[in-house]
C-alpha cells in the first residue's frame, strides 16, 4: 500500500509541476508554441485512448480517425454560431434540427464523446469477435466508411467543403485538462478490476473466459471508452484548428497516433504521455525537412514528404529493435505470426 501512496504522491507532484509549467507557457510563449502545446495535450488523450484498446486490451484497432471525425463534427456543429452555419452551408441548407442549435463547449465536448462512444458500441459489438489483423482491417474499414459518409451528407456535414469558422474554445487548460482526466481515468481503470479483466483478455482470451470474464462485455467496454476519448480529442482538435473537412480524417491521422503508442510502448501510460509530447514537438520541429528555409545567404531546399519518411523509418526501426518486447506481456507466450 505504501508503494501506491508513494506513486500517487509522485503523480500529484508531477501534476502540480505540469500545471505551473503550463501556466508559465501560457503566459510567456507565442501563439505558435502554444498551439503546439495544445496539440501535444490532444495527442496525449488520443495516444492513451488508443493504448487502452490496442495495448491494454490487446485489440488491434485502426479506427481512431473515424471516431475523431465524429467528435470533431459534433463539436463543430454544436458550437458554431447560427449565422456562421448559414455562411458555411451555402451549397445546401443544413438540416433544420441543427440549424438553430448553439451550445457551450463543455456540453459539446461531452456530446462528442458520447456520440462517439455510442458509435463505438454499435461498431464494436459486431466486429470485436474478429482478431488481430482482421479486426485492424475491419475498424480501418469503418473509419473509411465514416469519412465517405461525411463527404456525402451535404446537409449534415457540408460534405467535402468542410466546415469553417468553428469557435476557438480550445486553450491550454482545455486540451491539457482533458489529457490529465484521461491519464487519471485510464490509470484508475487499469488498476481496478476492469483493467485486470482487459489485460487478462490480452494475455489469453480462452483462459480469461474460463475464469469467468465476459469477453464481449469487456471488449465492447474498452472499445467504448477508447472511442469516447477519441471523440473528445477530435472535438478539441476541431475547436483548435477552426476548420475541418472529411479528408483530415484519413488513415494518416491514425498512423500518427499509432506511432505515438508504439514509441511510448504498448500498455505504458507514462511512456505514451512522453511520446505524445515528443512526437508532436518533433513533427513541428522537423517541418524544416518539408519546407525550404531561407538563411539569407543560402537557401536550403526542403523536400515535401521527407518528414513522414523520417517518422516511418523511426517506426519500423523501433518495431524491429524491440521485436517481441513491443508488447509488455506478463509471460512470453504468444503465437508468432508464422505459426498458427
Amino acid at each position: 500500500m505504501r508503494d501506491k501512496q508513494r506513486t500517487d504522491l509522485a503523480a500529484l507532484l508531477a501534476l502540480v509541476c505540469a500545471v505551473v509549467a503550463l501556466f508559465l507557457a501560457n503566459k510567456y510563449l507565442d501563439d505558435y508554441k502554444i498551439r503546439i502545446i495544445n496539440l501535444s495535450g490532444i495527442y496525449v488523450t488520443l495516444g492513451l485512448s488508443m493504448n487502452l484498446i490496442n495495448g491494454f486490451t490487446g485489440l488491434f484497432s485502426l479506427g481512431h480517425a473515424g471516431f475523431m471525425a465524429v467528435g470533431a463534427y459534433t463539436v463543430a456543429l454544436l458550437t458554431m454560431p447560427i449565422s456562421m452555419k448559414e455562411m458555411n452551408f451555402f451549397f445546401q441548407p443544413i438540416v433544420p434540427w441543427l440549424a438553430n442549435v448553439e451550445v457551450g463547449f463543455l456540453p459539446a465536448l461531452l456530446a462528442a464523446g458520447l456520440i462517439s462512444a455510442f458509435l463505438g458500441v454499435l461498431i464494436g459489438a459486431p466486429v470485436l469477435r474478429l482478431r488481430d489483423d482482421y479486426l485492424a482491417i475491419a475498424t480501418l474499414g469503418f473509419a473509411e466508411i465514416i469519412r465517405v459518409v461525411f463527404t456525402n451528407t451535404q446537409s449534415l456535414t457540408n460534405g467535402a467543403l468542410g466546415l469553417k469558422g468553428i469557435p476557438n474554445y480550445t486553450n491550454i487548460w482545455w486540451s491539457w485538462g482533458v489529457a490529465f482526466i484521461t491519464v487519471w481515468f485510464v490509470t484508475s481503470l487499469i488498476r481496478g478490476s476492469y483493467g485486470k479483466a482487459f489485460m487478462a483478455i490480452r494475455e489469453d482470451e480462452v483462459a480469461a473466459q474460463a475464469m469467468g470474464i465476459n469477453l464481449f462485455k469487456h471488449k465492447v467496454m474498452s472499445f467504448a471508452f477508447a472511442s469516447f476519448f477519441a471523440g473528445v480529442a477530435g472535438g478539441l482538435l476541431a475547436s483548435l484548428l477552426g476548420t475541418i473537412d472529411p479528408n483530415m480524417f484519413r488513415i494518416t491521422l491514425t498512423f500518427n497516433i499509432l506511432l505515438i503508442v508504439v514509441l511510448g510502448g504498448l500498455s505504458r501510460i507514462t511512456g505514451t504521455v512522453i511520446s505524445a509530447v515528443v512526437v508532436t514537438v518533433m513533427m513541428e520541429a522537423l517541418r524544416f525537412l518539408d519546407e525550404s528555409i531561407n538563411l539569407g545567404f543560402i537557401e536550403i531546399k526542403g523536400v515535401p514528404g521527407m518528414r513522414m519518411v523520417v517518422f516511418s523509418i523511426i517506426l519500423i526501426l523501433v518495431v524491429i529493435v524491440r521485436k517481441a518486447g513491443l508488447m509488455t506481456r506478463l509471460k512470453g507466450r504468444e503465437s508468432s505470426y508464422a505459426e498458427n
Binding site: G58, F60, L62, D132, D133, A136, T252, F255, L258, V262, V303, P304, G305, M306, M308, V309, F311, S312, I313, L315, I316, V319, I320, K323, A324, L326, M327, E334, S335, S336, Y337, A338
Partner: peptide
C-alpha cells in the same frame, strides 16, 4: 524478415510503417 518470430501485431505495425514509408518516399 527480422520479425518472423515476433507476435503478429508487431509485424502488422511494421507493415503499416513500410506502407507509409513507401508512400512518402513516393512523395519525396
Amino acid at each position: 524478415k527480422p520479425l518472423r518470430e515476433s507476435p503478429r501485431i508487431t509485424i502488422l505495425i511494421s507493415a503499416i510503417g513500410a506502407s507509409f514509408l513507401l508512400q512518402n518516399l513516393g512523395i519525396v
